[in-house]
Amino acid sequence: MRKTIGYTVESIGYVVGAQGLVSFASQTLFGTEWGWLHKVVDLPSAAYLGITVAGLALVVVGVKTRKAPDRQPVA
Rank of each mutant, 00 (worst) to 15 (best):
M1Y: 08
R2I: 12
K3R: 01
K3V: 01
K3P: 00
T4D: 11
T4Q: 14
T4V: 10
I5W: 10
I5E: 06
G6R: 05
Y7W: 09
T8I: 12
T8E: 07
E10W: 05
S11Y: 13
I12E: 11
G13W: 05
G13H: 04
Y14M: 09
Y14W: 14
V15G: 05
V15D: 03
G17M: 10
G17A: 13
G17I: 03
G17T: 03
A18F: 15
Q19N: 15
Q19C: 13
Q19A: 11
Q19V: 01
Q19P: 02
G20I: 10
L21T: 12
L21M: 15
V22T: 11
V22W: 12
S23G: 14
S23K: 06
F24E: 09
F24K: 10
F24R: 11
F24T: 11
F24W: 15
S26F: 09
Q27M: 15
T28D: 14
L29Y: 14
L29A: 15
L29G: 13
L29N: 13
L29E: 12
F30Q: 11
F30T: 08
F30G: 05
F30W: 08
G31I: 00
G31N: 08
T32R: 08
E33S: 06
W34P: 03
W34Q: 12
W34I: 03
W34N: 13
G35Q: 05
G35T: 01
W36A: 08
W36T: 02
W36R: 01
L37M: 13
K39S: 08
V40L: 11
V41F: 10
V41L: 10
D42I: 10
D42V: 10
D42A: 13
D42Q: 14
D42S: 13
L43N: 09
L43H: 10
L43Y: 10
L43E: 14
L43M: 15
P44H: 04
P44Y: 02
S45D: 12
S45A: 15
S45P: 00
A46N: 07
A46C: 03
A47W: 11
A47Y: 05
A47F: 06
Y48F: 12
Y48G: 03
G50D: 12
G50W: 13
G50T: 07
G50S: 10
I51K: 08
T52C: 09
V53Q: 02
V53W: 03
V53L: 08
V53K: 01
A54C: 02
G55S: 05
G55M: 04
L56I: 10
L56C: 08
A57E: 04
A57D: 04
L58I: 02
V59H: 06
V59Q: 14
V60M: 11
V60W: 10
V60A: 15
V61L: 12
V61D: 09
G62I: 00
G62E: 06
V63Y: 07
V63G: 00
K64I: 02
K64W: 03
K67A: 06
K67V: 00
K67E: 06
P69G: 12
P69M: 07
P69Q: 11
D70A: 09
R71M: 09
Q72P: 06
Q72E: 15
Q72K: 14
Q72T: 10
P73D: 12
P73M: 11
P73Y: 09
V74C: 08
V74P: 04
A75Y: 02
A75F: 02
